[in-house]
Amino acid sequence: MKRFLDFARHHLITVYMVGALAYLFVPVVVVMLFSFNDNRGRFNFTWRGFTLKHWANAFEVPNLFDSLVKSFQIAFLSALVATILGTLIALALVRYRFKGRSTTNFLLFLPMATPEVVLGSSLLALFLTLSIPTGFGTIVVAHILFNISYVVVTVKARLSGFDRHLEEAAMDLYANEWTTFVKVTLPMILPGVFAAFMLGFALSFDDFIITNFNSGGTVTFPLYIWGAARVGVPPQVNVFGTAIFVITVSIMLLTVTLQRRSDANVA
């Protein structure tokens, strides 16, 4: 015991870091672990032994896979549209001085600052007033709405360090505005744009509150789990959760590696 305390005293930062990481990742590890649990009955809360059967029967639970596909479609569509619109907004905000610029900056922050319950319910009120039937389309619209703010913030950060002389140099070398954007501006800000897309994708994928208000009959992955939780979550949810986590982390590692490489070239 004394030896442990001595160790802790000398490695305070290490101990603290391990503790913090454990706090963050224990829930994730539990989710992963229970995807291999040989559970009995409808609940999957106590460890009963190792099995691979849930992984083998991942697609057997009705509607689970469908909801996952829907979530992916919504996340992809909303992140894509938000990235295009948000990047253009960021370019305008950083590059030009126009009337209403600071107002636009402020308004863009609002979706991030507004509680999701407020955003979701007011959107629903809007859709009902305009008698737009809620469903897949309204979910996408809602997700684009909040994603744009995050895209603008991310891309703006990348643009703020951008040397305007690079664009002037391109135009000096016979590139018109479009070619300059494609050959110089876009490649330079691409890491930021890509990061914005990934962020938007993730935000859309796990959104529950706003989606719940505007989903109509459409069931996304978070909505499915929410519904299933009341009657017992099938272990396949853990299987998909684990798979998504592993894939996401892999993509992130890939991104970091690529970013490192491009930074090394710039420095």
């Binding site: 002389h165 690079l166 002037e168 140099a169 391109a170 135009m171 070398l173 110089v184 330079m188």
Partner: peptide
């Protein structure tokens, strides 16, 4: 006229080489 329509070229103070 736009810079790309003029028969002149520029060497910029910061060089403005394309880093990518």
């Amino acid at each position: 006229l736009k810079p790309y329509q003029r028969p002149v070229n520029t060497v910029f103070q910061s060089y403005a080489l394309f880093p990518h």
